[in-house]
């Protein structure tokens, strides 16, 4: 056992050099790296914690917003349901009202059409009745009837009252020389003579009797002289009857235009000074 003093001193120096080198190359750098890493980790942890808190805050805000949005959506939905219900009620009521209105109008139209149908039925039936009568009477009219007609006409001239006689006389005076005699059949000369003789008391001067044939009279005679007309004919009777019928209808159906609906047989008044002489 001995100690080599040179080696002893060299070993002390070696050790001190080793301490210095390791301190510079190893401990300082490693410790510095570790401290830097620790600081970095700490700062990252701090940052992570800050971000976590921030995220938590954002999450709370988002949840709050979502809750508000949900409530708002629910409110809007409820409102929409209420509005839809009200709109449905309104539309139903409107449709109901329109349906009732349509039904009412339909009923009115139906009633109007029914009335119009009845009116047309009445008018048409009247026309048929009158045309039938006219045809029957036309078929029955012949020479024998004509004879009766002349007799009846003469009888009527003779049986006129004072006022009528005066009217006839005045008109015959006004007429210059011609009196028109209208009949359904051509009058024989004796029949013309019979009528002229019946008019004799009312004539102040000679007149010519002009005979005219009109088959639409069916049967009968008309005396036309200077604004005066003395008539007895089935045609006139029928016209009078038809006029009365239409007057009755007019009173019942004021809106129906009987002039258009009545047909072609409107009575010709021709400015007669007095109503027709009905038989």
């Amino acid at each position: 056992m001995h100690i080599d003093w040179f080696v002893f001193a060299a070993q002390i120096i070696n050790f001190l050099i080793l301490v210095a080198l390791l301190k510079y190359f190893l401990y300082d750098r490693i410790v510095k790296a570790m401290d830097a890493r620790q600081a970095g980790i700490a700062s990252r942890m701090e940052e992570a914690e800050r971000l976590r808190q921030e995220a938590g805050r954002h999450l709370q805000e988002m949840e709050e917003k979502k809750r508000q949005l949900d409530a708002r959506v629910q409110e809007i939905l409820n409102q929409a349901v209420r509005d839809a219900g009200a709109e449905k009620e309104r539309l139903l009521a409107l449709a109901n009202e329109e349906a009732q209105e349509s039904r009412r109008r339909w009923k009115e139209t139906l009633a109007r059409e029914r009335e119009a149908f009845y009116d047309r039925l009445r008018l048409t039936s009247g026309e048929i009745i009158f045309s039938t009568i006219r045809r029957i009477l036309g078929d029955m009219a012949d020479a024998a009837l004509e004879e009766h007609v002349v007799d009846t006409f003469v009888g009527r001239i003779r049986g006129m009252d004072e006022q009528a006689q005066e009217l006839l006389r005045r008109s015959l005076d006004d007429s210059r020389s011609e009196v028109t005699l209208v009949s359904a059949f051509e009058l024989r000369p004796d029949q013309q003579e019979k009528i002229l003789s019946a008019l004799g008391p009312f004539l102040s001067h000679d007149v010519t009797l002009r005979c005219e044939v009109r088959p639409e009279l069916i049967s009968g005679i008309e005396l036309v002289s200077q604004g005066y007309r003395l008539a007895w004919s089935v045609q006139r009777h029928l016209e009078t009857l038809e006029e009365a019928f239409k007057e009755a209808l007019r009173e019942e159906l004021p809106e129906v235009n009987l002039e258009n609906a009545g047909g072609e047989d409107a009575p010709a008044q021709e400015g007669s000074r007095q109503p027709h002489q009905s038989g």
């Binding site: 070696n14 080198l21 190893l26 750098r29 490693i30 570790m34 830097a36 970095g40």
Partner: peptide, 24 residues
């Protein structure tokens, strides 16, 4: 002394190589 230097050389070499690339 020789083996002391060997040990020192290994230690210092490793320290330099590792410490030079030490990163945080």
């Amino acid at each position: 002394l020789l083996y002391t230097w060997v040990v020192m050389a290994i230690l210092i070499l490793v320290a330099i190589l590792v410490g030079r690339k030490a990163t945080a």
